[in-house]
């Protein structure tokens, strides 16, 4: 599966420049997992040792299994996000009959996340320009400084949310009207291709579940981990 997700990513021909930050996060994650999990699985043949830290052969095997799972998930979701526009994703969700309210909230979240990040960094800049130093002091002092950033962020977001709700209502989007059936300007419909792929995925997943429960496949990995 990991190999499959990597192939998908490679086939998507997304520029490496866009992927790089995500890959960095993936690498950092893998490293952290390797370190932290290694403390829980001791005993057996030691492969590498540094003070209290030791890596055993069995430990490595388990860590590798976990990493494969997490990275597969990460790469697959990354593939989904980089190959589809937000608009397509939302419309796709609507096509599989996810309620409008849910997709609308998702859309707002996607849309306003960058604004929130922007506000946050402006607030931080404004305090730095008044000689606040966020790198200085112990953990507690730093945490306190970061809380001071949240107050204006909440005020600004709250005001914006108020304006937004007024703007939404002014265009006929009403709390009472959400349940009402609405017409969507652009609608995606399932094509044959969609049906074939969905069916294949469904078959594959049910086969894996069936194999795990009744044929006892893949049991080794889960018992050691779980």
């Amino acid at each position: 599966m990991l190999a499959f997700s990597l192939i998908l990513l490679a086939a998507s021909r997304v520029e490496l420049r866009i992927l790089r930050p995500f890959l960095q996060v993936a690498a950092m994650f893998s490293f952290l997992i390797t370190i932290s999990w290694s403390f829980f699985f001791r005993g057996g043949q030691v492969v590498f040792q540094l003070g209290a830290f030791e890596l055993t052969y069995q430990g490595l095997l388990i860590i590798a299994t976990v990493l494969v799972r997490i990275l597969t998930l990460m790469f697959l979701s990354l593939f989904l996000l980089v190959t589809n526009s937000e608009s397509d994703l939302i419309q796709g969700l609507r096509a599989v009959k996810i309620p409008y309210l849910v997709t609308f909230i998702m859309m707002l979240a996607l849309r306003f996340f960058p604004t929130l990040i922007n506000d946050f960094s402006t607030i931080k800049d404004a305090q730095m320009a008044r000689a606040a130093e966020f790198q200085k002091g112990n953990v507690l002092a730093r945490a306190k400084k970061n809380v001071a950033l949240l107050a204006p962020l909440i005020v600004i977001s709250f005001n914006r949310a108020l304006t937004m709700s007024v703007a939404l209502e002014s265009r006929g989007f009403l709390p009472s009207g959400i349940k009402m059936k609405r017409v969507n300007y652009k609608e995606k419909h399932f094509t044959t291709k969609d049906y074939v792929i969905s069916a294949t995925i469904l078959c594959f997943v049910s086969f894996v579940i069936f194999a795990r429960l009744y044929l006892g496949w893949f049991a080794g990995i889960s018992t050691t981990v779980g």
């Binding site: 608009s87 859309m107 849309r111 265009r171 006929g172 989007f173 009207g177 017409v183 300007y185 652009k186």
Partner: peptide, 14 residues
């Protein structure tokens, strides 16, 4: 998410 969806939003609501 796009300009045309933005413009369609009001009429959709009705």
């Amino acid at each position: 998410l796009t300009v045309e969806e933005e413009v369609a939003f009001g009429p959709e609501n009705y």
